[in-house]
């Protein structure tokens, strides 16, 4: 399948969804006005990938900032990964946060509490 690579902007994160080398990453800042529009490509890609996923999928999130409309879109992404996990695939989410950033840690905990999928918080 085709990989999805999106370069970062001042309002949108860097996206690397590369099934060939097994790298799945969303990093940077996610504060677009139209989050739904931005994440549609990501959601569509995951929907396609989940039909025939790799034996192991580790999805890494390393966000500096995100707005509340992105938070809903991120949950949509997580729900899809959760669904993949529940249908028997090996899936893991890694939520990286700056050691100083208590808010980003808390948001990670918020998501972890809502999901039934391996969700690891990593301080960097």
């Amino acid at each position: 399948m085709r990989n999805l690579i999106i370069e970062p902007t001042s309002k949108t994160p860097k996206i690397i969804l590369n099934a060939d080398v097994n790298v799945f990453e969303i990093s940077g800042r996610s504060i677009p006005e139209d989050s739904v529009g931005f994440y549609r490509k990501v959601i569509d890609w995951i929907d396609d990938y989940s039909k025939n996923p790799n034996p192991k999928t580790n999805f890494k999130f390393q966000l500096e900032y995100f707005n509340t409309s992105s938070s809903k879109c991120l949950l949509d992404v997580f729900r899809r990964l959760e669904k993949m996990y529940k249908s028997g695939n090996q899936v893991e989410i890694t939520w990286c946060y700056d050691a100083d950033d208590e808010d980003m840690k808390e948001t990670g905990e918020d998501y972890k509490a809502l999901l039934e999928v391996p969700f690891e918080l990593v301080s960097i």
């Binding site: 509340t68 809903k72 809502l114």
Partner: peptide, 19 residues
């Protein structure tokens, strides 16, 4: 925050009601 994040649909303006 968790309640609204997980239960409410996005508004037609694409906002989450979490601001």
């Amino acid at each position: 925050y968790q309640e609204i994040l997980s239960n409410e649909e996005m508004s037609d303006k694409g906002t989450a009601g979490l601001g």
